[in-house]
Amino acid sequence: MSELSGMQKTERWLWPIFATALFLLFWRYAVIWTGTRVFPSPIEVKLGLTQLVDGGVLWRDIVDSLRRVAIGYFAAVGLGIPLGLLLGWYPSLNQIVNPVVQILRPISPIAWIPVAIILFGVGDDAAVFLVFLGAFFPIVVTCVDSVSNVPLIYRRAGSNFGLTGPQLLARVVFPAALPQILVGLRIALGIGWLVVVAGEMIAVDSGLGFLIIDSRNSGKRYDLVVGAMLLIGVIGLILDVLFRRIETIKRVRWGFRNES
């Protein structure tokens, strides 16, 4: 049994590496076979990125993007969780507010770009606002759902020990809902990272989104376009992996199926 799981452990690394290598190989030969002069090969992308790193620009772009996501995301967390808990706790209030939330929620944050620019001008604030919008609604909606999904048995047990109102919310309902809320927070972070790129293409002149659009506009540097795209993917993956670490904290691990 241990032999088998040991094999699985190496395979867990081996196969993804193999698949990635295959993908890079396919990419390289696709460029060669099609004879394209526009689309870069993996090696050209790597050279382009090295150039950016040496110039010191890349690091600044990454930090700018991450900063915008962080501000917008934490604002969404800070406002979305209390609002979601409140609406989940008072279903009658939720009935009043829910239609507005449900109408605003499916609007892509990208559709908000003109409004963001009117409200905040061209600059950081507009991009941050878009991230905020992208993350805010999923957080609110999952909080409402997760609070109403808290089993009655926990609320009864809490009230049986003399807890009422805010105490019951803080000591029973919130911790009981937390695993599900964390799932929403993780999804919201992913959306925030998606949205910042779009925001940076229009509203600001730094960040990975700007890098893409700027590389195309000034000199058709598709090696940098593709390089930035790959970086966005890798950073998004890292953010997700880091967030998943939170799920292994014992206070919340009970709520995740793949607990061990």
């Binding site: 089993p151 048995i153 926990y154 009864r156 047990a157 009230s159 049986n160 020990f161 003399g162 029973v172 911790p175 009981a176 937390l178 206070r251 919340v252 009970w254 709520g255």
Partner: peptide
Amino acid sequence: RGADPRRIFVFQERGVFPWLTVEGNIGFG
């Protein structure tokens, strides 16, 4: 007229709070 800590209801084991340790659960009240 309502729940009261002088009278405690014991559910099937589903009533244990999963986010608290054994100590945290027993000390909850």
